[in-house]
Amino acid sequence: MEFLTVAALKQQAGEQPQRLAVDAELQGRSERQTKTGKPYLVLSFADATGGFNLNAWSDAPLFDAASRFTDGTVLRLDADWTQNQFGLNAGNLAWERLDGDALETFYAGDPETAERQRKAWKTITDFCSSIKDPRLAALTDHFLKEYGTRFRRAAAARKNHHARRGGLSEHVAQMMRAADAICGVYPDLNRDLMLSGVLFHDCGKLWENQYAEKGFAQGHSIYGEMLGHIPLGIELANKLWHEVAESPAAKGWLTEEPPSEHVRIHLLHLIAAHHGLYEFGSPTLPRTPEAVALHHIDNVDAKLEMMKDAYQESAELGDGIYEKRFPLPANLVAPLPPYGDAPQAPEKETPAPSSELF
């Protein structure tokens, strides 16, 4: 039997049961009660590609077995899988613990994800090496050397988008591509500041959405819980700035334009304002062209990643219409392919939508 990744399982599971197997790490459990007072468990599982929750009802064998599983246990889950708007369901579930070579293969992650994240990291380092402002070049280099390993483990979120080990590097790399492109369209934007802001905007997630050196369970830290990634990011960027400012090379920065203090505060503003609105957690609103651009680049990349996942995982309600996935606002409709890429029409053509609707 083929053992799927979590992402592949979500793509294949639908309304009709399919016998499939997936290897996943138990991240945690929470005790719940049904409306009638019966206990059940919500078990959280993950691998390199994503995660899912599984309900263990009190009358199911998994309910009793789960009490013997410690967090971090890796299981092979073989079941008749279905999926609906509430997530995955497993019927006739069987399981076994992974050990030995099978466990090491699981921790290595799937090759496709590993290669995608390797390319993402190269994109990040290449863009950072193109920064011309000596202050921002030194700062980004210092950050990548000091925190690169931790950065490459972090997720971009706990759920919704890029919520996987290494997801932050994928998110930042795509945002850098977008920032570089938009600077070509709007040349008045400060490209060096934009690229640096993209790198640092979510750097607080190195504590808020971090993974251990081994495994796919996203941990919790007292710093992430009590401060959140925006205050943490401001503190980290400010700390690294002052460390770089004490280096011998910084002596030549006194005569640089714009003044170094202006560069520092503009960078910190990008971190502070990247959520765009007070109600979304920003301590301030975007007040510069770069802050406006970075906020929208961040939002676009997050939303498009959510839509990509939704097309793969949501039930098809009708021809090309997909069930709404939180936090997206509505049911999705299949995108229009570029001209020339559309599939060949069948012999019996489906009538096009009437142009006389109105």
Rank of each mutant, 00 (worst) to 15 (best):
Y211H: 11
G219M: 12
F200Q: 07
I222V: 15
Q218E: 14
G219L: 12
V185G: 01
A217W: 06
L206E: 04
L193F: 12
G215Q: 05
K214G: 05
K205L: 00
G215K: 03
S221P: 06
G197Q: 02
V185T: 15
F216E: 00
N209E: 08
L189H: 07
V185H: 15
L193E: 00
G184N: 13
L195E: 02
Q210N: 14
H220Y: 08
V198G: 03
S221E: 02
D202Q: 10
V185K: 15
D192P: 07
L199T: 06
I222R: 12
Q210R: 15
V198W: 02
M226I: 06
Y211C: 05
N209W: 06
P187Y: 10
K205T: 04
G224I: 00
L199C: 13
E225R: 13
V185F: 14
D192F: 07
C183T: 15
F200R: 06
K205C: 07
H201Y: 13
G224A: 05
M194R: 07
D192N: 02
F216L: 00
G204I: 04
L195D: 01
E208C: 05
D202A: 10
C183D: 10
L189N: 09
G197E: 01
G204F: 06
M226K: 13
W207M: 12
D192M: 04
E213R: 11
G184H: 12
K205N: 01
G219S: 14
R191T: 11
E208P: 00
G215D: 01
I182R: 05
H220P: 00
L195H: 09
Y186L: 15
L193V: 10
N209R: 03
N209I: 01
Y223C: 09
Y186N: 15
W207N: 09
G184Y: 04
L206M: 14
H201M: 09
S221M: 02
G184I: 03
H220K: 12
S196R: 03
L189Q: 03
L189V: 12
G184L: 13
A212L: 11
G204D: 05
H220E: 12
E208H: 07
I222M: 14
N209D: 14
